[in-house]
Design a binder for these strands. Structure first.
Lengths: 118, 118
DNA sequence: GATCGTTATGTTTGACAAAACATATCACTG
DNA sequence: CAGTGATATGTTTTGTCAAACATAACGATC
């Protein structure tokens, strides 16, 4: 019933931070692997890895650290910076849903419930 | 210096309301014409018109009313519903910038100022 | 009734993003 | 030292969205 919110920040250095990268960070934190996180959100490993690369390059300190080889083949996890970025972004989203409820409700009330067929 | 914010709402009926449609509504209000609004934001008339069609179809009451012919060829303007939708969306954006300042500042401070070349 | 700028659509083309496919590398373990 | 599963990249193909192009209709005014 509630509309979905998508919040996207375009920073001066070119980084675009939105739901996709945030979800990916969260997936890596929970799965311990870039490829597992990618699989979970039905994203190719290559794409997931490119997003990680983008983020790591855009911050002074990388958000994801990864290792290759070993008995499990390797893995990845969030650095402190990564955890912080994720937390701030989620905090922003939550704040908007909370404090933006009136506007969102007003807009929702004006909508037709008939989905526009393409 | 300040990052750009893009807020997008995906409603249950399929409508996606973001900066593009909001700017277009504002342009129509200020220019009195879909094509003039489109020109102003360097968007083809066709695209502008399609966005208007999307919005009009998604709400119980159309947001833009238009007329054809006449000495000036025609024109378009926002209905009360259109004005209301635009106002609510702008209000949401302003609120996020205001109350999200802390999070945005934290994220900005962590960024590298070196733009990642493609 | 010719002119004008706009609304209203359809069709084709092109650009770019995402997917698909294909390897190479790594390091731990048995 | 062979096997394993993940990281790390390059290349090719596909799909989708936007731009470009092309017309028709409209109606007040002169």
């Amino acid at each position: 019933m509630a509309p979905k919110l998508r919040l996207r920040l375009t920073f001066d250095n070119g980084l675009i931070l939105g739901p996709g990268k945030a979800d990916l960070l969260q997936g890596i934190a929970e799965e311990g692997s870039i490829s597992a996180a990618g699989r979970r959100m039905k994203m190719s490993y290559k794409r997931a890895w490119m997003l990680v690369e983008d983020m790591n390059a855009a911050f002074v300190s990388p958000l994801v650290e990864s290792s290759r080889g070993g008995q499990k083949g390797g893995g990845a996890s969030l650095t402190d910076a990564g955890e912080a970025v994720l937390a701030e972004f989620r905090s922003l989203e939550a704040m908007v849903l909370e404090r933006g409820a009136p506007q969102i409700a007003t807009l929702s009330a004006m909508l037709s419930d008939i989905p526009a067929q393409k």
